[in-house]
Design a protein around this nucleic acid. Structure first.
Lengths: 260, 260
DNA sequence: CGGAACCTTGAGAGTAATCAACCCCCGTGG
DNA sequence: CCACGGGGGTTGATTACTCTCAAGGTTCCG
């Protein structure tokens, strides 16, 4: 049974067992674990790990905590492109193979393995499992971006907000972080707005409206409880189960983990 | 010298020479060409190659023509997530490794090599170059999605439109399809709108406004000429050169191909 | 000569941004 | 203990942008 574990110390390694690879190929995790452990670093909430356009020749593996990936316009307007949760893998380099197309920031205290491409590629070539893991992470990332882009372009504030909550709920549920529909988001309304393309003021209005309708409840600034999943998914325009298969790496194999 | 060639027959193979891999590793292209040729198929404009959620275990390599990748909300609202141009490579499967997260449509007559994953993976494992090509295509795709998402969420209609024209110009220029700032887009205003999250009516207004300001000129429904690249890139919020490096696979190696 | 599909332009409606005020919570320092 | 200040969150009023609806206009084709 998966249980929520604190995000530090020995537990990071236990979390690795949750990664897709670990269950299938007992030969790899040891080496993979070693690689992650030897490149592991911790960052405090608010730290900027990488600026847009900075050189980046590494793969980021999140062991604990949340990272945000964002881009900014000259006038300071910011768009959060994705959140990286524990178990997330990202190669932030753009087509030139050198510079990062994204700014990477820690939203909470995070532990991240920053693995140089050469090292990662070596292991990836040797191990089918690691290679698959990378491919699957990229596919999930792409699917998330597509779903979000659809709603950014065509959805109302309500649709975008509902989708964001649903997506984060589904992703958190996959690692046992949702209890009875309740989960914690380490986000300000401003950041949620940067994620779904709304002003913080309008995020607030939209969340309040959904609360009043009894679809969700919030406590303590961003402890969210989904009260009416059916209504939420109708507004978001997608079934939670469909979404999980699409955007959660190893969503199929981890099917025993359901939404709380 | 790159010249625009008709998109059929022997020319498809010539175009392969433009692919990143072909210049660097003389050993691969032959085998790679064979793989593409043996899986090559043609589709008429308007054909739907793949529906959202349909099973997909193949990699799509565009040899000629344009593909659109889109997603739809239940109410029929559609978002075009990306365009695939000649030389484009895409694995449309989502995190479950089985179903496509995108609908794939032909915007023009296209020739596409649809290569089963098993075949592709085989060659990809053997050849570093093919593997790199895949990685780079994925990185470019991701970078494009991120740039566009930034403007979808935070940009005005003018910013989004200018960016779309700039992006497409930069990508077309990379394969010699821009002459003196002029290029052809096989798109209706409706489709351009689906791409940048605007109604077709507002696309029209925005294009007209930019024409009146002397930034662009249009003929024949979507033959676009960029008259004032400086103004366009200021509105779009990015330098063409920066953008090229970020979103065009092998943008660095192909640096001799400049914007017209 | 229609008719269809698309572009263009105007008018009105609706949604979200911005500006501004107030609240609450919490940590600091007197 | 309390005054103070800062950072968010909440709410109202106003503004601005984009959508929708509607009416031509153009081009192409049967």
């Amino acid at each position: 049974m998966d249980r929520q574990v604190p995000s530090h110390g020995i537990h990071d390694l236990r979390r690795l067992r949750e990664w897709p690879a670990a269950d299938r190929d007992p030969a790899v995790p040891a080496e993979f674990d070693r690689m992650l452990r030897s490149h592991k670093r911790g960052f405090r909430a608010g730290t900027t790990l990488k600026l847009e356009g900075e050189e980046s020749g590494a793969v980021y593996c999140v062991l604990s905590g949340w990272l945000s990936l964002s881009k900014s316009l000259q006038d300071g307007q910011r768009q959060i492109v994705d959140f990286l949760l524990p178990g997330g893998i990202l190669n932030p380099s753009s087509a030139d193979r050198l510079t990062s197309s994204l700014q990477i920031e820690a939203l909470t205290y995070v532990t991240v393995a920053i693995v140089p491409r050469s090292v990662w590629d070596g292991l990836s070539r040797e191990s089918q499992v690691v290679h698959d893991m990378e491919t699957q992470a990229a596919a999930a990332f792409m699917a998330r971006l597509s779903e979000r882009m659809l709603r950014l372009g065509k959805g109302t504030a309500e649709t975008r907000t509902a989708y964001a909550l649903l997506e984060l709920c589904v992703r958190l549920a996959a690692s046992g972080r949702v209890q009875c529909g309740k989960f914690h988001l380490p986000l300000r309304q401003q950041q949620l707005g940067d994620f779904i393309g709304l002003s913080s003021v309008h995020v607030c209005r939209t969340l309040r409206r959904m609360s009043r309708k009894g679809i969700i409840a919030t406590e303590d600034h961003m402890d969210v409880t989904i009260l009416d999943m059916h209504a939420l998914s109708r507004i978001a325009g997608v079934e939670p189960e469909t979404l999980r298969l699409e955007i959660v790496p190893d969503g199929g194999a981890g099917a025993h983990r359901r939404l709380g």
